[in-house]
Design a protein around this nucleic acid. Structure first.
Length: 445
RNA sequence: GGCGACGUGGCGGAGUGGUUACGCAGCGGUCUGCAAAACCGUUUACCCCGGUUCAAUUCCGGGCGUCGCCUCCA
């Protein structure tokens, strides 16, 4: 079996991947906060880790990989929107919160599925695990890692000697560089919230510290523990989550689990820009997956994403999308169904080298039809067979008639009429190709 | 201010201590009424300055530039 190597943020090096239990390879990826449409930047980790999920399934067997991608449905951005809606429609905030998160989560699942991503094994919602979060916080207090103050519960960073090991920074330098005001109830500037109080206009849950809501980081610790156990194999997410989110997850989980590691390998994908600029609502270049899917097939978006290595910064451009579409078109167009696709050794080796998808795609360019079909399948692209079957219904007989009429005109050297017929078909999205063996046609974008 | 990443030919984008990445575009050709497609061939590269080395785009040091995190943004 080809050996999988992954770049571990913890060690800052590529390491041989060896799961704790090959019969149950476990991966956790931070999922969406469901308050708005997911954007193109959100799509990157989803696609990247879907490829890893598929690769792990290929290497260890589909039944032996467990993939958890959570849904964050407790969040102050959600709360702000819920409060707004609750006021406008005169309903209570909890109802509004449930509505927003439900609708957004459904939309997210649809969008991501259109990108060719498999559903994760589990997609837990934070609201279903508040009990586990409270229990973990209680454990942290009992063990002396956390303290309650003014309705809040805080994690005391000073009690975790190796705090900062994931982000590779020391507590001292972080305090020195801190630019935020320190809340008065904190013992130290670096202490972070595990639980905070909710007022009447904010969703909340009962707890030993009064009605309140969990901090951001604790949800992943609790859900990971519930679904994957104390220690699992892979934890992934965007590079911007390394600090503070993942660092704090590590602190909480390890402290609650007698020092046992949370995850053995930490993977982080690089940031994505749009046409050379950081995506932001103020710049007006905020691109949602949903909007893109109206103009482009999801597979093109997926392919475009995989042309850049996942750890590299990526620039998303329309020019790149066109190039991606062109490549996929050529690979799909005119191909006969492949009866026995297989995954090439060089292709697999590239993928196993820290998910080097650009190299893997280069191998597909060199490959024959069988290896290309196999490789595309492993990367999560529909097979050529499916692609052909999924073509929109086209009146092939009418096209054949038109081709016959055009060829008659060509034979009569009435090229004006021949070109008119060709243009007419092109306007309907049908491109003609005159080859040595006659005229063939294909669907153009 | 602190920490970190990146800088490859017209564009996208891998990789390597010495030997073609790959794709797109361009150019030439085959084919063709013309086109398109396809196929064949082909030009352009490793941010700057030092150092190590027989040899550096690849290792080390410095500089410059772009970007990210430190602000619950993937």
């Amino acid at each position: 079996m080809t050996k999988l190597r992954l770049y571990n943020t913890l060690s800052r090096a590529k390491e041989d991947f060896a799961p704790l239990d090959p019969a149950r390879v476990r991966m956790y990826v931070c999922g969406p906060t469901v308050y708005d449409f997911a954007h193109i930047g959100n799509a990157r980790p989803v696609i990247v880790f879907d490829v890893l999920f598929r690769l792990l399934r290929h290497l260890y067997g589909p039944a032996h990989v467990v993939y958890v991608r959570n849904v964050t449905d407790i969040d102050d951005k959600i709360n702000a929107r819920a409060a707004e809606i609750a006021r406008g429609r005169n309903i209570d905030v909890e109802t509004a919160r449930a509505e927003i998160t439900e609708a957004t989560a459904r939309q997210y699942a649809e969008d991501v599925s259109a990108l060719g991503c498999l559903a994760p094994t589990h997609a837990p919602r934070a609201t279903d695990y508040v009990g586990g979060m409270v229990a973990m916080i209680e454990r942290l207090i009992a063990e002396g890692f956390a303290y309650a103050a003014e309705g809040h519960v805080l994690f005391e960073v000073a009690k975790k000697a190796d705090y900062g090991k994931l982000a590779h920074r020391s507590v001292d330098e972080m305090i020195a560089g801190a630019r935020v005001d320190v809340a008065p109830y904190k013992k130290s500037a670096m202490d972070f919230v595990l639980w905070k109080p909710s007022d009447d206009n904010t969703p909340g849950w009962p707890s030993p510290w009064g009605r309140g809501r969990p901090g951001w980081h604790i949800e992943c610790s609790a859900m990971g523990e519930a679904l994957l156990g104390e220690t699992f194999d892979i934890h992934g997410g965007g590079i911007d989550l390394v600090f503070p989110h993942h660092e704090n997850e590590v602190a909480q989980s390890e402290s609650a689990h007698r020092g046992h590691a949370l995850a053995r390998v930490w993977l982080h994908n690089g940031f994505l820009n749009v046409e050379g600029e950081k995506m932001s609502k103020s710049l007006g270049n905020f691109v949602t997956i949903n909007a893109l899917l109206k103009d482009w097939p999801g597979e093109v978006l997926r392919f475009n994403m995989l042309r850049t290595h996942y750890r590299q910064p990526m620039d998303w451009t329309v020019a790149g999308m066109n190039e991606s579409w062109k490549t996929l078109e050529r690979w799909y167009a005119g191909s006969e169904p492949i009866a026995d696709p297989h995954v090439g050794a060089e292709f697999l080796a590239a993928l196993c080298d820290d998910l080097n998808t650009p190299q893997a795609i280069a191998e597909l360019h060199k490959a024959d039809d069988r290896a290309r079909a196999g490789g595309l399948g492993l990367l999560g692209f529909s097979s050529v067979q499916e692609r052909i079957a999924a073509r929109p219904a086209i009146d092939a007989a009418a096209i054949a008639d038109a081709i016959a009429a055009r060829n008659a005109a060509r034979k009569a050297r009435d090229f004006r009429e021949a070109d008119r017929i060709r243009d007419e078909l092109l306007a309907k999205g049908i491109a003609l190709m005159d080859g040595p063996g006659g005229t063939s046609w294909d669907v153009k974008r």
